[in-house]
Amino acid sequence: MTVSLQWYIGLSVVLFGMGALGLLIRRNVLVMYMCIELMLNAANIAFVAFAEKLNDIGGQAAVFFVLVVAAAEVVVGLGIVVAIFRRRPDATVDDLHMMKG
């Protein structure tokens, strides 16, 4: 009893939507960044599901590169957060709100 592709894509879309929603409603930068990770993972699910159904390794290779990119992006992103914090030592994570919009 196999799960059809639609279910995987449905799950992926819901996860993507939740990531986007979280990014839009949360103000804490670290949590917003986690939401971006959720969105990337939604793309990963879609890639692997398609790769499985297409019987093509390309999707898995794509996931491989996404992992690499996510790692690199997180390093710089958190580096920026830390750099801002060091300029304002009295700030906590809770103060790292976006300026506006």
């Binding site: 103000r27 670290l30 958190l78 830390v82 914090f85 906590t92 994570v93 790292l96 976006m98 919009g101």
Partner: peptide, 17 residues
């Protein structure tokens, strides 16, 4: 990073800007 920056003890209020 969260630990490094330190989470405030008080309840975090998610503001709607």
């Amino acid at each position: 990073v969260i630990m490094f920056l330190g989470v405030d003890k008080r309840e975090v209020i998610v503001r709607e800007s």
